[in-house]
Amino acid sequence: MLMVLTMISTTANADPDDFFSPFVSGSYNYDSNFFRLQNDQAAMARLGTSNMAESYFQFTAGAKVNWHISRQLIKAKAEVNRTRFNKYKVLNFDGRDTMLQWDWLIGSALSGDVGVSEKTAQGSFVNIQQPINNLITLKRAFFHGGIELGAPWKLKFGVEKSDSTNSLASQNTLDSTVNTYNTGLQYQTRKGSLLELTSQMSDGRYPNRQIVGLAPVDNGYKQWDNGIQATWEPSGKIKLLGHLNYTQRRYADVPQRNFSGVTGLLSANWQVTEKTGLGLLVYRDIGVVENTTASYSVNRGVTLTASWKATDKVAFNLNVAQSRIAYTGDPGFVLSTGPAREDKLSTLQAGVSYAVLRNTNLGVILQRGVNQSNQDLLSYRFNSVMLNLRSVF
């Protein structure tokens, strides 16, 4: 990374798309129910106090790089962050986010990307519900390629490896390695619309067994996703994107929780005027959960967004979302007669950003959330505020 930054800073007559862009940011965050507890009684049991609020500061510094070498492009990112809590200082942590990628091109027919990334961040408190720190480190390596078969056809292929580890011993059953292999045949029209037939296989492995009752359970699985995806712009102001898959997930140890069904998403964006935009997202997918009682969840939901650029310096945005989260990947559920956990989460988020200077933005985000669960003590409400100042050089 250091060598790349040094060469970019000393190279004369660089490509106009090349850049070295440092950035810094600082934010103040407040959450009225940081540990997502149902009521005062639950807070007393978990925290020893009925005060469920917490606030914290986060400071971030880093840089992004684009560097062209002939027809090749090198991309890099390096970021470090520090989070300091007001009340629960045991949760203080330092995180990082790094990435190195090569967008390669060979002749006129072969292209793709290869790279690695690593990120360390704090895990969610939705299921832990107490001030215990769990840092999740996600490492990813990938290679994607494409072969031009002659307009308008293109053959695509790729392989990825993702490793996730948890610092908290009680969460190490969630440590995993997922290897993914995919291929597709793409058709592109003269106007830029895309239609692609896709096929993907994922092999998930969990090195640490989960104990259900007295039996160790292997959460390893194999998953197949076969379907289509498309991008269509019927006009200069409307863009539609979607993919539809038939997904199958199979478990060797607990086949009762196998999944088969339709997954996918539909996204629509409409630039109503030069200053106003609307968006819609509808989805159903299999999600990764930070929960030792389930290795996956089936999520379905809808999100509505609106944006308005009031002036050259001031912009507003609004986000309304509702999702249903079914923890059908819980082996305890399939080995008992009780119902699987299911949550309905509704959120309303409003934000405003102000360009203080040409390269500095001040932003405020307000959010309210309500979660309703069919399990005891898992429903909750929260309000949060984030004030952020960010500069890009």
Rank of each mutant, 00 (worst) to 15 (best):
Q129C: 09
G192Y: 07
D285P: 00
N86S: 12
R341A: 02
G287Y: 02
G242N: 02
N258E: 15
A306L: 06
T303K: 13
T180H: 03
F393G: 14
T173W: 00
M3N: 09
N182V: 03
V80Y: 07
H243Y: 11
M3K: 11
V352N: 06
V217C: 09
A310Y: 08
S21G: 03
R84L: 08
L265H: 15
T165S: 10
S373I: 11
T198C: 14
E79Y: 02
S167T: 11
D15G: 03
A76P: 00
V178W: 00
F93K: 06
L5I: 07
G146D: 01
Q38V: 04
E196C: 04
T293C: 03
D103G: 05
D343L: 05
F382D: 13
Q122K: 11
S27H: 03
T98R: 04
G220E: 00
S167F: 04
G242K: 00
L37G: 01
N291H: 10
V289P: 00
F316D: 01
N92D: 14
N166C: 00
D343W: 02
T292R: 13
N359E: 11
P255L: 09
T198R: 13
G227V: 00
G184R: 01
T183Y: 09
G264T: 01
Q349P: 00
N127F: 12
K239A: 14
E79M: 13
S297D: 10
P331A: 08
Q256G: 10
V356P: 08
L240V: 14
Y380C: 01
Q41S: 07
N29H: 10
N81H: 07
S25I: 01
T189M: 06
Q58E: 11
F143K: 02
L194F: 05
S164G: 03
D94Y: 09
G279E: 06
V4Q: 07
